[in-house]
Amino acid sequence: MRQLNVLAIDLAKTKFQVCKRTPGGQIVYNKMVSRAKLTELLATEKPSLVAMESCGGTHHWARYAKAQGHQVKAMSARKVKAFLQGHKTDANDAEAIAIAATQPQVKACRLLSKDEQCQQSILRIRELLVHQKVASTKQLRDLLLELNYPIPVGDSALNQAVPEILEEAENGLSSDFRAVLSEQWQHIKVLWRRLEEVERRLTHQASTDVICQRLQQLEGVGPVNAMSLKTVLNASEHFKNSRQAAACIGVTPVQHSSGGKERMGAISRLPGHKKLRSTLYEGAMAVIRQLAKREARTVKEQWLQQLIARRGKKVAAIALANKTVRTAYAMLKNNTDYQPVMLAA
């Protein structure tokens, strides 16, 4: 890799800064090019190490560069920033990317195929629809509560209450507010239908994908978690071991060790895949709620019950999420199915 020229690209939408650096560290050029010129440049340059920050457009340009015979290294912007010299300009950014790409300690980010990007995009759209639905229904509940209409929790209760409020002619609501309320109610119903359709397609994708089918054998893993785990862990060679995979998602404790003394803290709220960690936690809590109603059937469930007794449900849920990620990594790396160890009858 060190014997190749480095083509460092500071990505943007239409104007790209490209810095070409020799293996000896000499800058050949550092210029701004258009989108069409970048396509031409990657096609005409001899095989090089194409480096870029992991941001919008990274996966497309990485796939294109690989198709032209280049090696690709996409890096976290946080890692690249340490090599920035001088003020923040496009030229300095591109030069920092070129320097960072030659450092072996700067780890490359994962690159997704187009199919994986499509699956990830379905998850992102679903996530946005869920946020919009929650925000819209909460606002509607709060406004009606202020007007002395307390509505029980749940979409079914809201679906029953709002039409009754709109049909009640003697409730003193102004005509303008009644019209706006009706329009907002129609908007919420559209959100429900769109979310239901996206989840239907998501479930279909997970049911026809062999990897997602295997991952759904794990405790607390449904279509959403299965597709998310596949997207993050499918390139198993990206991680040295299962602990690195768990740390990438953010379900390992933060370490602050010095002087030979190891100090392990709580999980960090900053790094990692926050949404996947959140859904894994929700899935783990669902497993814990079900386990409270029956006896343990597997060795893992027995371990989970003992952990709940010692540390509580929330710590146990994070521990189960950690174990789920590690098991999923092993399944994808070894191409095996999940085989829980059953307790003796």
Rank of each mutant, 00 (worst) to 15 (best):
V106H: 00
A108V: 01
C109Y: 00
L111W: 01
K114S: 03
D115T: 06
Q117F: 00
Q117D: 04
C118W: 05
Q119A: 09
Q119D: 10
Q119T: 00
Q120K: 07
S121G: 06
I122P: 00
I122T: 07
R126P: 11
E127A: 11
L128K: 13
L129I: 10
Q132D: 15
K133L: 14
K133A: 09
K133G: 12
A135Y: 05
A135M: 08
S136I: 06
T137P: 06
T137G: 07
Q139C: 04
R141G: 03
L143F: 05
L147Q: 10
Y149S: 00
P150S: 01
P150I: 01
D155F: 08
S156R: 13
V162K: 02
V162E: 00
I165V: 07
E167F: 02
S175E: 15
S175V: 12
D176I: 15
F177N: 07
R178E: 02
R178A: 07
L181T: 04
L181W: 08
L181H: 04
W185E: 00
Q186Y: 02
H187K: 04
H187A: 12
K189I: 05
W192R: 08
W192T: 07
R193G: 08
R194E: 13
L195A: 02
L195K: 02
E196N: 09
E196W: 01
E196T: 05
V198H: 01
E199S: 02
R200Y: 05
R200S: 07
R201H: 11
T203Q: 15
H204L: 09
A206M: 05
A206H: 02
A206K: 03
A206I: 03
T208Y: 09
I211E: 12
C212M: 06
C212N: 08
Q213P: 05
R214Y: 07
R214C: 13
L218R: 12
L218D: 10
L218W: 12
E219P: 10
E219M: 14
G220Q: 13
P223N: 11
M227D: 06
M227V: 15
S228F: 09
T231D: 12
V232R: 13
L233G: 09
H238A: 15
K240I: 13
N241E: 05
S242E: 15
S242L: 09
Q244H: 13
A246T: 08
A247R: 07
C248R: 11
I249D: 03
G250T: 03
V251A: 04
V251G: 01
